[in-house]
Design a protein around this nucleic acid. Structure first.
Length: 1039
RNA sequence: GCCGAAGUGGUGAAAUUGGUAUACACGCUGGUCUUAGGAACCAGUGCCUUCGUGGCGUAAGGGUUCGAGUCCCUUCUUCGGCACCA
């Protein structure tokens, strides 16, 4: 062998050289406006911890990059952005711990993170980073908040929230893990606080529906489906009968009506004050209202707003001021006349307040002037969707003259909303005459009807089992209990139970081994609407106040929890569904008992079963299969107005307020007069003030409340002194839209540039941790849908593809500082080089499964790199040439396919086989073969180990980067050998293998197989029953 | 309890989707070369075996099939998520 000088594999020098070169050449900064084949290759941006980049981060990011580089070599214009998700409690707590200010910690962390991220060989476009904690970013996070606020999708309500006593802030349901804080593992408490929410529940159906078509893996979809938790069923009303003779105290106020409050809103007056116009003059303006008010008072019902706007023609803001002061809730009935109706429609749309019923009395008028007045309430727009908030409970009194043009025509009402429309005899735009006609009592009865009796509404997914409801259960928090206080005979016992139940923390409830507890409420009974049976009412904490209606009808024969409860307290168990399908279905469910015995036990109330089947003991449902029985029952209930079809979701609204410092201040100003007013967009960002003392106080208010200069401001509407909101928003809000920003970072006048969005969004490939499947992924889908509805973007789903990768462990355990098993990526890169680390991480195992870091594995990969280097430079091409070079084509094909499906470990295995093959034949290749092999060695390795590949590429005398080169093509015809190894099986067992030419016919193969020596032996004295031949692979002889 | 993913050599893991189980590595054993090697190279490496072949092997048991790691049923184990959701 001639002394050939092989250069040393100095990975440090090589990696540094290419990193610098790529940067100066701006190789990874696509022209966002001109790119022809845009491909947005996104990875979840990291939460920068002060400890630095985790090896798990390197694992993910380089995996994503490998895919991106492969795509780049396929000719796509790759946009691979990076940023930092730096706002949030995590960093804040860390700063507190080390006694430094969060701001300085963040600055340092950012520098360190970006240094590390630039050292892992990724194609980041460093000209477009996004940091959630920079004002130029959170300005738009605040803008986003305002868009939701204006749409009524951000609202404030007093709510029981999860409170972490250690972090001193509110947590969303998703952040509470088994009753503990996700971050610090403290016991979470329930606190009643006024909080900001995003109305994600409005999008529950769409979030669910789109899962049918988006191209994500099924496990992620299932997770989201479960989280949204849709269940279909019915709401059913149970009347309460009061045992009058047992009532302790006579109620002073009326006990006849359960109604909480009625709010009346009158219309505007288009004529001048003092006018003689009888219909709309000041005399009449409030006339009907006062009349109605008095009528209601006679019945003992209080009208909430006795104060009216002073103006004769109140505007939206005039009414709103009054509405901000009165309590409107799910028991409220709102009545609006004319512009008053218009006001209510808009107000409901904006605040999303749930009410009991909306009554519109002559909501519109056909005069031009009136139309103008009315449409001014909406800025001329037509408003739909009020049914969302007053489902099925809109009643409209209208005459032909009162076509409500500002909303929809009367006919449209019927179509669009499930509203009941009652036509008035034409007496003008609802006048004094109307009050004397037959319709007016009807109006009264619409108000009074609902309060004839007390009712308990329940939600059930099994309306077919209604005949088997033998008792009811109320959650301890159920409002009715307090209301019925005077009727309850054993009030003290009930109260005591409720107090203990409420006092229990979530954890305690769970620790009680699910042993059911409860107290019967004596003195009242419920009437089962289907058979008028009087059934007992219990209060028990196994019924949750937050789901459904907070009350259930208990069917012990067909629900395990109800069964357990009924058994314990000796309540009747009535079987109303007989499972069918016989022993086959039955076998899997309860093994050990015979089917007949099972049915017998079920009917005797010894066991319970939630299986479907056919209805029994259920009068008009008897004999029907469950699905049909459900439908028939719902129809029956709806006809009798005892219930209705209903859909419930587990998904709750997203609580976005946080009582901490390190987040974007919520851009709202609270004004005594004008209420919660959005900060005008031109005033954004509301900058997070520098505060030396940023520690939370823990009294339910954020640290910003301590900063007087920040808090005190003026109301943008009326100019009077007002106070700023002091909560900041949840970091999940920051990350719910960051990917929309990357391609628009240079625009400081808009969050998302339309042209850019058109080109680069939705994201083509999104890769990140599976732990974010319900939180971040759901939130960002929601925000995308909202922005789509608002017209800022034109797609509903943010990510075309999502791939969830696995985690890196050390010795099978999660890495953590306390365990002392943390792998420092800097050290590894220093020791083995970036390429070796990248390759090793890819080789560990399946990308979706994660893997276990082993130092000797990494060392092994470093050894392979050396070998690879040696092999490359050893190849001289002085041989005569090898006959078969299929290996080259096979390798190109296999690696390409593997990379496309992110199967990196097998891609590397293929590459190693390729190298092994080269080494075995290295002396024999001729010059042309050597050229081709060397090119292939570099090209197919490039996505995984970019630096060494680029180095090989220059050594092959190329002056352009390898990443501007196309992924090599392979010759389809060259994949097949001209021979193959035929496997000969007898009865499925391998008995022999012989080499056969590819072109041999089936008959010939069969003959050859039988004639081979070993097979002959086995076939001796046997008859062949059958022969199965799989082309090009094997033959199975059955004897 | 429910939902999801998985269970293959001493270890990390492959297996063209029903067609030769253990590719590719790590580790280990033996050898070559070395003053030495934790370097490099060569050979071996699922278990049993009468060393001929053969038999057994993909958590356990059963089934479908000419043929099962792969499909179906039951059981067990591990990991992740949810947890009285009516």
């Amino acid at each position: 062998m001639p002394e050939q000088k092989i250069p040393e594999y100095n990975f440090k020098k090589i990696e540094k050289k290419w990193k610098d070169k790529w940067e100066t050449d701006k190789l990874y900064q696509p022209d966002l406006d001109k790119a022809e084949k845009p491909f947005h290759n996104l990875m979840m941006f990291p939460y920068p911890s002060a400890e630095g980049l985790h090896i798990g981060g390197v694992y993910t990011f380089t995996g994503v990059d490998t895919y991106g580089r492969y795509k780049k070599m396929q000719g796509f214009d790759i946009f691979e952005p990076i940023g930092l998700d730096g706002f949030g409690i995590h960093s804040e707590n860390y700063a507190m711990k080390i006694g430094e200010h969060i701001k300085t910690v963040s600055e340092r962390t950012e520098k360190n993170f970006y240094r590390q991220l630039s050292s892992i060989g990724n194609m980041y476009d460093w000209s477009r980073t996004v940091e959630t904690y920079k004002p130029e970013y959170y300005k738009w996070t605040q803008w986003l908040f305002l868009q939701l606020f204006k749409r009524g999708l951000a609202y404030q309500k007093k709510a029981k929230v999860n409170w972490c006593p250690w972090c001193k802030t509110v947590l969303s349901d998703e952040q509470v893990i088994q009753g503990k804080c996700e971050r610090c593992e403290s016991q979470v408490e329930k606190k009643e606080l006024k909080q900001w929410f995003f109305k994600i529940t409005d999008y529950a159906e769409k979030l669910l529906k789109n899962l049918e078509w988006i191209d994500w893996s099924e496990d992620v979809k299932i997770n989201q489906r479960n989280w949204i938790g849709k269940s279909e069923g019915a709401r059913v009303k149970f009347e309460i009968s009061i045992k009058k003779q047992e009532t302790r105290n006579k109620k002073q106020t009326n006990s006849k009506y359960q109604i909480s409050n009625v709010v009346i809103v009158h219309g505007s007056n288009s004529t001048k004050e003092g006018s003689e116009n009888k219909e709309s003059g000041p005399e009449n303006l409030r006339h009907w209202k006062l009349w109605l008010n008095n009528k209601l008072k006679e019945k003992g019902i209080k009208v909430s707003n006795e104060i009216y706007p002073k103006d004769w023609a109140p505007k939206y803001s005039d009414w709103k001021k009054i509405f901000d002061k009165i309590d409107i809730n799910e028991d409220s009935i709102l009545i609006g006349h004319s512009a008053g109706g218009a006001f209510l429609v808009r107000w409901l749309n904006e605040t999303k307040t749930k009410i009991k019923k909306l009554i519109l009395v002559s909501p519109g008028k056909s005069g031009k002037q009136s139309r103008e007045v009315l449409s001014s309430f909406y800025g001329g727009k037509i408003i739909k969707n009020i049914d969302l908030y007053v489902k099925n409970k809109i009643v409209i009194f209208t005459s032909n003259d009162d076509i409500p043009k500002h909303i929809q025509g009367a006919e449209e009402y019927k179509k669009e909303l499930p509203a009941k429309v009652i036509n008035l005899k034409n007496h003008g735009h609802f006048t004094i005459q109307d009050m004397k006609t037959e319709e007016f009592p009807e109006l009264l009865s619409e108000i009074l009807e609902e309060k004839k009796e007390n009712q308990i509404e329940v939600f059930t997914t099994r309306p077919d089992t209604l005949f088997g409801a033998t008792y009811m259960v109320l959650a301890p928090e159920h409002k009715l209990i307090e209301k019925m206080k005077d009727e309850i005979k054993n009030w003290e016992e009930v109260q005591k139970y409720i107090d203990t139940a409420k006092g229990k923390s979530e954890q305690e409830r769970k620790e009680e081994e699910k042993e059911k507890t409860g107290v019967e409420i004596k003195g009242i009974k419920a009437i089962n609407p289907v058979n008028q049976a009087e059934i007992p009412i219990w209060v028990a904490d196994y019924v949750l106040s937050g789901y459904g209606t907070g009350a259930i009808m208990a069917v012990p024969a067909h629900d395990e929890r109800d069964f357990e409860f009924a058994k314990k307290f000796g309540i009747e168990i009535k079987c109303v569904v007989e499972p069918i399908g016989g022993p086959i279905i039955f076998e899997g469910q309860n093994s050990g008992i015979a089917y007949d015995e099972f049915i017998k036990d079920l009917k005797e109330g010894k066991i319970c079963s939630s299986m479907i089947g056919k209805s029994i003991n259920s009068e008009f449902l008897d004999g029907l299969k469950t699905e049909k029985a459900k439908q028939k029952m719902i129809k029956w209930l709806e006809e009798k107005k005892l219930g209705e079809k209903s859909i419930d979701y587990k998904l709750r609204d997203w609580c976005v307020s946080r009582q901490r410092y390190w987040g974007p201040p919520i851009p709202i100003i609270h004004c005594e007069k004008c209420g919660a007013v959005p900060v005008p967009e031109k005033d954004l960002p509301v900058e997070l003030p520098d505060m030396i003392d940023f520690l939370p106080e823990g009294k339910g208010k954020g640290p910003l409340a301590k900063n007087v200069e920040f808090v005190n401001t003026v109301c943008p509407v009326c100019g009077k002194p007002a106070k700023r909101e002091t909560d900041v928003s949840d970091p999940f809000v920051d990350s719910s839209w960051y990917f929309l920003r990357y391609s628009s970072t240079e625009f400081d006048n808009e969050a998302i540039n339309k042209d850019r969005a058109k080109k680069w969004l939705p994201v083509d490939s999104y890769i990140g941790g599976k732990e974010h499947t319900v939180l971040h992924l759901l939130y960002s889908r929601f925000i995308t849908m909202v922005l789509n509805d608002l017209g800022f973007i034109d797609f509903e789903e943010p990510y075309k593809k999502f791939f969830g990768h696995g985690l890196i462990t050390k010795d099978g355990a999660k890495m953590s500082k306390s365990k002392g098993n943390v792998i420092n990526p800097d050290e590894m890169i220093e020791k083995y080089g970036v390429d070796a680390v990248r390759l090793y991480l890819r080789f560990l195992g399946d990308f979706s499964q994660g893997g276990d870091w082993r130092d000797d594995g990494a060392a092994g990969m470093a050894r392979f790199m050396k070998k690879l280097w040696q092999t490359f430079f050893d190849l001289e091409g002085a041989g005569e040439g090898v006959e078969k070079t299929q290996m080259i084509d096979k390798t190109i094909k296999a690696i390409g396919e593997d990379l496309e499906k992110l199967s990196f470990n097998t891609a590397i295995a293929r590459y190693m086989e390729f190298i092994n093959w080269i080494r075995e034949n290295s002396a024999n290749f001729n010059l042309g073969q050597t050229q081709k092999i060397k090119r292939t060695m570099a090209l197919v390795l490039a996505p995984m180990a970019p630096h060494i590949a680029e180095e090989f590429w220059t050594k092959l005398k190329n002056d352009k980067s390898i990443f501007l080169e196309k992924w090599p093509a392979y010759n389809e015809e060259n994949l097949e050998d001209d021979q193959f190894e035929l496997v000969i099986q007898i009865n499925g067992k391998v008995r022999n293998k012989i080499t056969v030419s590819i072109g041999v016919e089936e008959d010939e193969i069969k003959k050859i197989a039988q004639e081979s020596e070993k097979i002959k032996k086995h076939l001796k004295g046997q008859t062949i029953k059958k022969m199965i031949y799989i082309k090009g692979k094997l033959i199975n002889i059955v004897i």
